[in-house]
Amino acid sequence: MNLIAIDIGGTTIKFATWQNNELHKEFSIDTPKDLNTFYEELTDGVNELKEKVNAQGVAISSPGAVNKKTGVIEGASALPYIHNFEIVPELEKRFDLPISIENDANCAALGELADGAGKGCNSLAFFVIGTGIGGSIIINNKIWHGAHLYGGEFGYMLIDGKQLSAIASPVAMAKRYNEQTGKNFDGKTVFTLADNGDPIATKERDIMLHALASAIFNIQHSFDPEKIVLGGGISNNPELVPLINDEIDRIRHNFDIATLKPEISVCELKANANLRGAIADFENEHCN
Protein backbone atom coordinates (compact mmCIF):
# COMPACT_ATOMS: atom_id res chain seq x y z
CA MET A 1 0.00 0.00 0.00
CA ASN A 2 1.26 3.45 -0.94
CA LEU A 3 0.49 6.22 1.55
CA ILE A 4 1.26 9.86 2.26
CA ALA A 5 2.38 10.60 5.82
CA ILE A 6 2.21 13.96 7.60
CA ASP A 7 3.73 14.88 10.95
CA ILE A 8 2.17 18.08 12.33
CA GLY A 9 4.43 19.91 14.75
CA GLY A 10 4.23 23.24 16.48
CA THR A 11 6.82 24.85 14.18
CA THR A 12 7.17 22.45 11.24
CA ILE A 13 4.97 20.05 9.27
CA LYS A 14 6.80 17.13 7.67
CA PHE A 15 5.59 15.26 4.59
CA ALA A 16 6.69 11.76 3.60
CA THR A 17 5.61 8.86 1.40
CA TRP A 18 5.35 5.16 2.18
CA GLN A 19 6.18 2.92 -0.76
CA ASN A 20 7.25 -0.73 -0.87
CA ASN A 21 7.24 -0.78 2.94
CA GLU A 22 9.79 2.03 3.11
CA LEU A 23 9.44 5.57 4.41
CA HIS A 24 10.71 8.36 2.16
CA LYS A 25 10.96 11.82 3.69
CA GLU A 26 9.90 14.35 1.08
CA PHE A 27 9.76 17.94 2.37
CA SER A 28 8.65 20.13 5.24
CA ILE A 29 6.88 23.47 5.63
CA ASP A 30 6.51 26.02 8.41
CA THR A 31 3.41 25.35 10.47
CA PRO A 32 0.66 27.80 9.45
CA LYS A 33 -0.77 30.31 11.91
CA ASP A 34 -4.47 29.84 11.04
CA LEU A 35 -6.88 27.14 9.94
CA ASN A 36 -7.49 28.32 6.38
CA THR A 37 -3.78 28.45 5.61
CA PHE A 38 -3.37 25.08 7.32
CA TYR A 39 -5.99 23.54 5.03
CA GLU A 40 -4.50 25.13 1.92
CA GLU A 41 -0.91 24.12 2.60
CA LEU A 42 -1.74 20.57 3.64
CA THR A 43 -3.92 20.11 0.57
CA ASP A 44 -1.20 21.53 -1.70
CA GLY A 45 1.35 19.19 -0.14
CA VAL A 46 -0.90 16.13 -0.50
CA ASN A 47 -1.77 17.00 -4.11
CA GLU A 48 1.93 17.41 -4.95
CA LEU A 49 2.69 13.95 -3.55
CA LYS A 50 -0.37 12.38 -5.20
CA GLU A 51 1.25 13.22 -8.54
CA LYS A 52 4.36 11.32 -7.43
CA VAL A 53 2.75 8.38 -5.65
CA ASN A 54 -0.42 6.44 -6.31
CA ALA A 55 -1.50 6.99 -2.72
CA GLN A 56 -4.39 5.09 -1.15
CA GLY A 57 -4.59 7.31 1.92
CA VAL A 58 -3.05 9.94 4.18
CA ALA A 59 -1.63 9.07 7.62
CA ILE A 60 -1.32 11.98 10.07
CA SER A 61 0.52 12.45 13.36
CA SER A 62 -0.91 15.37 15.31
CA PRO A 63 -0.63 17.10 18.67
CA GLY A 64 -3.66 16.90 20.95
CA ALA A 65 -5.94 14.17 22.25
CA VAL A 66 -7.29 12.54 19.10
CA ASN A 67 -10.73 11.01 19.55
CA LYS A 68 -10.87 8.17 17.08
CA LYS A 69 -14.61 7.70 17.53
CA THR A 70 -15.62 11.28 16.72
CA GLY A 71 -12.84 12.49 14.42
CA VAL A 72 -12.21 15.41 16.77
CA ILE A 73 -8.83 16.50 18.15
CA GLU A 74 -9.64 17.25 21.77
CA GLY A 75 -7.47 18.81 24.47
CA ALA A 76 -5.08 21.64 23.68
CA SER A 77 -1.79 22.22 21.87
CA ALA A 78 0.35 24.91 20.27
CA LEU A 79 -2.15 24.85 17.37
CA PRO A 80 -5.48 25.85 18.94
CA TYR A 81 -7.21 26.09 15.55
CA ILE A 82 -7.14 22.30 14.97
CA HIS A 83 -9.10 21.44 18.12
CA ASN A 84 -12.69 20.64 19.06
CA PHE A 85 -14.43 20.17 15.73
CA GLU A 86 -14.78 17.26 13.26
CA ILE A 87 -11.53 17.70 11.36
CA VAL A 88 -11.32 14.19 9.87
CA PRO A 89 -14.21 14.49 7.39
CA GLU A 90 -13.02 17.97 6.40
CA LEU A 91 -9.54 16.70 5.53
CA GLU A 92 -10.90 13.62 3.73
CA LYS A 93 -13.02 15.90 1.57
CA ARG A 94 -10.07 18.14 0.72
CA PHE A 95 -7.61 15.31 0.07
CA ASP A 96 -10.15 13.05 -1.67
CA LEU A 97 -8.54 10.17 0.21
CA PRO A 98 -9.23 8.26 3.43
CA ILE A 99 -7.16 9.52 6.35
CA SER A 100 -6.14 8.52 9.85
CA ILE A 101 -5.08 10.86 12.65
CA GLU A 102 -3.38 9.85 15.88
CA ASN A 103 -1.68 11.74 18.70
CA ASP A 104 2.03 12.33 18.06
CA ALA A 105 3.26 10.48 21.16
CA ASN A 106 1.05 7.53 20.27
CA CYS A 107 2.44 7.62 16.73
CA ALA A 108 5.99 7.61 18.05
CA ALA A 109 5.16 4.56 20.17
CA LEU A 110 3.57 2.77 17.19
CA GLY A 111 6.61 3.60 15.08
CA GLU A 112 8.96 2.10 17.66
CA LEU A 113 6.69 -0.94 17.91
CA ALA A 114 6.73 -1.43 14.14
CA ASP A 115 10.38 -0.83 13.30
CA GLY A 116 12.26 0.43 16.33
CA ALA A 117 13.13 -0.39 19.91
CA GLY A 118 9.80 -2.15 20.50
CA LYS A 119 9.85 -4.38 17.42
CA GLY A 120 8.73 -7.89 18.31
CA CYS A 121 6.85 -6.75 21.41
CA ASN A 122 3.09 -6.66 21.79
CA SER A 123 3.13 -4.31 24.77
CA LEU A 124 5.25 -1.33 25.74
CA ALA A 125 5.21 1.99 27.55
CA PHE A 126 6.72 4.93 25.69
CA PHE A 127 7.97 8.02 27.54
CA VAL A 128 8.42 11.35 25.74
CA ILE A 129 10.84 13.36 27.89
CA GLY A 130 10.93 16.97 26.81
CA THR A 131 9.55 20.24 28.17
CA GLY A 132 7.19 18.02 30.14
CA ILE A 133 6.63 14.27 30.30
CA GLY A 134 4.21 12.65 27.87
CA GLY A 135 3.85 9.16 26.62
CA SER A 136 1.85 6.25 25.36
CA ILE A 137 0.78 2.77 26.39
CA ILE A 138 0.47 -0.12 23.94
CA ILE A 139 -1.31 -3.31 24.97
CA ASN A 140 -1.76 -6.23 22.55
CA ASN A 141 -0.26 -4.12 19.75
CA LYS A 142 -2.89 -1.39 20.17
CA ILE A 143 -2.79 2.06 21.72
CA TRP A 144 -4.54 2.23 25.08
CA HIS A 145 -6.33 5.57 24.80
CA GLY A 146 -8.12 5.28 28.12
CA ALA A 147 -11.72 6.09 28.96
CA HIS A 148 -11.04 9.84 28.80
CA LEU A 149 -8.12 9.90 26.30
CA TYR A 150 -5.61 10.14 29.17
CA GLY A 151 -3.84 6.86 28.45
CA GLY A 152 -0.10 7.46 28.60
CA GLU A 153 -0.29 10.91 30.19
CA PHE A 154 2.52 10.02 32.56
CA GLY A 155 3.31 13.66 33.30
CA TYR A 156 0.27 13.87 35.60
CA MET A 157 1.59 11.04 37.78
CA LEU A 158 2.37 12.14 41.34
CA ILE A 159 5.87 11.39 42.60
CA ASP A 160 6.68 12.54 46.13
CA GLY A 161 3.59 14.78 46.00
CA LYS A 162 4.57 16.56 42.79
CA GLN A 163 3.57 16.05 39.16
CA LEU A 164 6.15 14.08 37.20
CA SER A 165 6.39 16.77 34.50
CA ALA A 166 7.30 19.35 37.15
CA ILE A 167 10.28 17.42 38.48
CA ALA A 168 11.47 14.90 35.86
CA SER A 169 11.90 16.89 32.66
CA PRO A 170 15.33 18.29 31.68
CA VAL A 171 13.68 21.72 31.41
CA ALA A 172 12.43 21.52 35.01
CA MET A 173 15.83 20.29 36.19
CA ALA A 174 17.60 23.22 34.49
CA LYS A 175 15.07 25.69 35.90
CA ARG A 176 15.73 24.51 39.44
CA TYR A 177 19.47 24.75 38.91
CA ASN A 178 19.26 28.23 37.41
CA GLU A 179 17.06 29.51 40.24
CA GLN A 180 19.73 28.48 42.75
CA THR A 181 22.77 29.68 40.82
CA GLY A 182 21.61 32.67 38.77
CA LYS A 183 22.77 30.90 35.59
CA ASN A 184 20.83 30.33 32.39
CA PHE A 185 21.86 26.78 31.49
CA ASP A 186 19.85 24.16 29.62
CA GLY A 187 19.27 20.60 30.78
CA LYS A 188 22.13 19.15 28.71
CA THR A 189 24.59 21.53 30.34
CA VAL A 190 23.32 20.76 33.85
CA PHE A 191 23.69 17.05 33.11
CA THR A 192 27.32 17.64 32.12
CA LEU A 193 27.95 19.77 35.20
CA ALA A 194 26.68 16.89 37.33
CA ASP A 195 29.16 14.59 35.58
CA ASN A 196 31.90 17.03 36.56
CA GLY A 197 30.91 17.06 40.22
CA ASP A 198 28.90 20.27 40.52
CA PRO A 199 26.97 19.64 43.78
CA ILE A 200 23.83 21.57 42.82
CA ALA A 201 23.71 19.99 39.36
CA THR A 202 24.22 16.57 40.92
CA LYS A 203 21.40 17.13 43.40
CA GLU A 204 18.96 18.30 40.74
CA ARG A 205 19.89 15.52 38.34
CA ASP A 206 19.36 12.99 41.13
CA ILE A 207 15.87 14.42 41.73
CA MET A 208 15.09 14.02 38.02
CA LEU A 209 16.48 10.49 37.85
CA HIS A 210 14.65 9.38 41.00
CA ALA A 211 11.34 10.72 39.66
CA LEU A 212 11.79 9.01 36.27
CA ALA A 213 12.90 5.75 37.88
CA SER A 214 9.91 5.83 40.26
CA ALA A 215 7.50 6.42 37.39
CA ILE A 216 9.02 3.60 35.35
CA PHE A 217 8.90 1.30 38.39
CA ASN A 218 5.22 2.16 38.89
CA ILE A 219 4.33 1.59 35.23
CA GLN A 220 6.17 -1.73 35.18
CA HIS A 221 4.28 -2.97 38.23
CA SER A 222 0.86 -1.73 37.14
CA PHE A 223 0.70 -2.35 33.37
CA ASP A 224 3.70 -4.74 33.19
CA PRO A 225 4.76 -3.99 29.60
CA GLU A 226 7.43 -6.06 27.87
CA LYS A 227 9.59 -2.99 27.37
CA ILE A 228 9.76 0.67 28.33
CA VAL A 229 11.09 2.98 25.62
CA LEU A 230 12.42 6.47 26.29
CA GLY A 231 12.18 9.26 23.72
CA GLY A 232 12.90 12.97 23.57
CA GLY A 233 16.20 14.77 23.16
CA ILE A 234 17.62 13.44 26.43
CA SER A 235 17.36 9.90 25.07
CA ASN A 236 20.44 10.68 22.95
CA ASN A 237 22.52 10.81 26.14
CA PRO A 238 24.21 7.39 26.55
CA GLU A 239 24.30 7.86 30.34
CA LEU A 240 20.54 8.09 30.73
CA VAL A 241 19.53 4.42 30.77
CA PRO A 242 22.43 3.24 33.00
CA LEU A 243 21.71 6.00 35.51
CA ILE A 244 17.98 5.22 35.57
CA ASN A 245 18.71 1.50 35.95
CA ASP A 246 20.97 2.25 38.92
CA GLU A 247 18.21 4.30 40.55
CA ILE A 248 15.63 1.57 39.90
CA ASP A 249 17.97 -0.92 41.57
CA ARG A 250 18.08 1.34 44.64
CA ILE A 251 14.28 1.54 44.67
CA ARG A 252 13.92 -2.24 44.33
CA HIS A 253 16.31 -2.88 47.21
CA ASN A 254 13.86 -1.14 49.55
CA PHE A 255 11.36 -3.99 49.14
CA ASP A 256 11.41 -7.31 50.95
CA ILE A 257 9.28 -8.99 48.29
CA ALA A 258 10.49 -9.66 44.75
CA THR A 259 9.99 -6.86 42.24
CA LEU A 260 10.34 -6.68 38.48
CA LYS A 261 13.29 -5.04 36.79
CA PRO A 262 12.00 -3.06 33.79
CA GLU A 263 13.66 -3.54 30.41
CA ILE A 264 14.46 -0.01 29.29
CA SER A 265 15.53 1.07 25.81
CA VAL A 266 15.89 4.38 24.03
CA CYS A 267 13.94 5.11 20.88
CA GLU A 268 15.65 4.11 17.62
CA LEU A 269 13.68 5.88 14.91
CA LYS A 270 14.31 9.39 16.27
CA ALA A 271 12.83 12.02 13.90
CA ASN A 272 11.10 9.35 11.79
CA ALA A 273 9.13 7.80 14.65
CA ASN A 274 6.00 9.94 14.28
CA LEU A 275 5.80 9.43 10.51
CA ARG A 276 6.38 5.69 10.76
CA GLY A 277 3.81 5.41 13.53
CA ALA A 278 1.24 7.37 11.54
CA ILE A 279 1.64 4.78 8.78
CA ALA A 280 1.13 1.96 11.27
CA ASP A 281 -1.95 3.72 12.64
CA PHE A 282 -3.46 4.06 9.16
CA GLU A 283 -2.86 0.38 8.46
CA ASN A 284 -4.42 -0.58 11.80
CA GLU A 285 -7.46 1.59 11.15
CA HIS A 286 -8.13 0.93 7.49
CA CYS A 287 -6.51 -2.41 6.69
CA ASN A 288 -7.19 -4.64 9.70
Rank of each mutant, 00 (worst) to 15 (best):
G152C: 04
Y156D: 12
G155S: 05
A166K: 09
K142H: 13
N141G: 14
G152I: 05
K142P: 07
H145G: 14
D160H: 12
I167G: 06
L164M: 01
W144H: 10
A147V: 15
G161C: 05
L164E: 00
L164G: 05
A174R: 07
P170R: 07
I137V: 11
F154S: 03
I139Q: 14
M157R: 06
K175C: 06
A147E: 15
E153P: 01
G155Q: 02
G135I: 00
M157W: 02
F154G: 04
L149E: 01
H145I: 12
Q163F: 11
G155I: 04
G155A: 05
I139V: 15
R176Y: 06
Q163L: 11
L149N: 01
Y156A: 12
F154M: 02
S165M: 12
G152H: 06
R176E: 08
Y156Q: 12
Y150D: 04
S165T: 15
N140C: 08
I167Y: 03
L149H: 03
R176C: 07
I137E: 00
K162L: 14
H148Y: 13
A172D: 01
F154P: 01
Y177A: 10
Y177L: 10
A168W: 03
L164N: 01
A168K: 04
A174H: 07
G146Y: 09
K162F: 11
A166E: 11
N141R: 15
S165V: 10
W144I: 05
Y156R: 12
I139Y: 13
A168H: 04
Y150V: 11
V171D: 07
P170V: 04
K162A: 14
Y150H: 10
K142R: 13
E153S: 06
I159L: 12
S136G: 07
I139R: 11
E153N: 03
I137N: 01
Y156I: 13
A168E: 06
W144M: 08
G151K: 02
G152S: 04
H145L: 15
Y156N: 13
M173H: 09
I137P: 00
Y150K: 09
L158I: 12
L164C: 03
L158P: 11
I143L: 07
I167T: 08
I139F: 15
L158S: 13
G161E: 05
K142W: 08
A147P: 10
P170H: 09
K142V: 06
K175L: 12
Y177M: 09
G151P: 04
Y150L: 13
H148N: 15
A174Y: 08
M173I: 09
G161F: 05
D160L: 09
I139N: 13
A166R: 08
W144Q: 05
I138K: 00
N140G: 08
G161M: 06
